[in-house]
Nucleic acid binder design. Structure first.
Lengths: 242, 242
DNA sequence: GCAAAAGTGTTACCCGTACACCCATGG
DNA sequence: CCATGGGTGTACGGGTAACACTTTTGC
């Protein structure tokens, strides 16, 4: 089984495996992705996702965390998960590089220092992107939006403590449509994702009732409401893992 | 960005990328996976998933279809999708090989010719497996069982035409628990996945009402019932893509 | 008291499960 | 006419969306 695949003809000058991450954050109500502007050809001037070559002594998840550490404070990245492989033969010119893509999430209150060429770009108005990175961002969006429905993945976009209004804005930004605070609180509470801290947040200058502060009960990914139709006989309601 | 990652030290004798497929089929009521028994070290005698090295001129999906063609008649493989990357540094000994894993599905009435060292092994009683292939089979099971709930993926396990009873057996085998024919028909019909062919299947020697024959309305993967909680305002019921 | 913001109660509707009941055929 | 397998009708329960209503604050 072992054996290096030889390059085909002389067209490819390099072969390897890279990791790439679509790191998402809700900033001022919009979902944004971390990207850097390429200063050299190919695709000079276009925006690329952070990443780099996989080393022999690390798996792809270790690698993506190592690469992200060069762009942001890793402690700000609350969740990382694999999206899939991008492997079209000429996805990058003059080389044969297979990429493993990742989704990364950063809480809305984190403001990590980033290099000068790096910025948070809104996902609904992306500037021109390098290579196939736009497709990776699309996959990341699909994954995040789906998992907001049936997992507790919101913990990775929210601060440690927050009001339901603040959480509503985060969900609305991530999902791209309005979200009802009433129903958001009800759904997440019923699933055991939220717990009150006991503290309250003082109202703004216009008055209003002080908002209770909440936190996520768990800060690791958990499927809270798997969509299980055709479930085993005798199981009532949805299958919720305890 | 281009540049080959050099092997670390002298321990690794080979580097590359392979594709592996967990091809599943329901045979005589049990879910089984296609595997071949290794005749040489390492892991001699253990059972491995079909696959092989990725070439420079193909993407991973083309590659897995090419590799499978060496084991089975490709026209029998009704669906292929990517599971993810397995990349632990020493997942195979004395080499550095990253694997992209796939799920493949074969209809229950297909009986492709397979090589002598290859067999359909029951997933609930797998013989000893090579390398990390057991983890790939686990991922394939999870993916299939989840998608049976919210997509039309059953088309890839079912014959072109079938009775509801036959389909019930396929779903029960795949899910690993009993399935009600009544509710299976109702759920799939409501989602527009099933349509009657008009023909009927004659009853067996013990008598009984002749069963109507059905087919899947579409034979490509489609999400029929995405689990969308917190859906956009104004949308009634589940979000079903038309 | 009034406006503003937060939180609760209530209702309507969709969907899947369970189960009773009717249908068509062979012996 | 009875056993066997196929198919339909109906009741129940769980869960979310929508919206009216109450609570608590600043001015």
């Amino acid at each position: 089984m072992p054996g290096t695949t030889p390059p085909l003809g002389g067209r490819h000058v390099a072969t390897g495996h890279e990791v790439l991450a679509a790191v998402l954050q809700v900033r001022d109500g919009r979902l944004r992705v971390l990207a850097w502007q390429r200063g050299i050809a190919p695709d000079e001037g276009r925006w690329a996702l952070p990443g780099g070559h996989l080393r022999d002594d690390e798996d792809v998840e270790e690698s993506v965390r190592r690469q992200l550490a060069e762009k942001v404070d890793l402690s700000d990245v609350a969740h990382v998960e694999q999206l899939g492989v991008f492997s079209a033969p000429h996805r990058v010119p003059d080389a044969r590089i297979v990429a493993t893509a990742f989704l990364g999430l950063v809480p809305s209150d984190a403001d990590p220092a980033v290099p000068d060429d790096t910025a948070w770009q809104p996902v609904d108005a992306l500037p021109p992107t390098a290579f196939d990175h736009a497709a990776i961002v699309d996959d990341a969006l699909d994954r995040l939006r789906a998992k907001l429905s049936y997992t507790n993945i919101g913990f990775a976009l929210a601060p440690a403590e927050f009001t339901v209004s603040a959480l509503r804005e985060i969900y609305a930004g991530a999902l791209g449509h309005p979200v009802s605070a009433t129903n958001l609180q009800r759904v997440l509470t019923r699933r055991g994702q939220l717990e009150p801290t006991g503290a309250v947040s003082p109202p703004g200058p216009a008055g209003g009732r002080p908002a209770a502060l909440f936190r996520f009960t768990r800060r690791t990914l958990r499927v809270t409401d798997a969509f299980a139709v055709l479930r085993p006989p005798g199981e009532v309601g949805r299958a919720v893992v305890p």
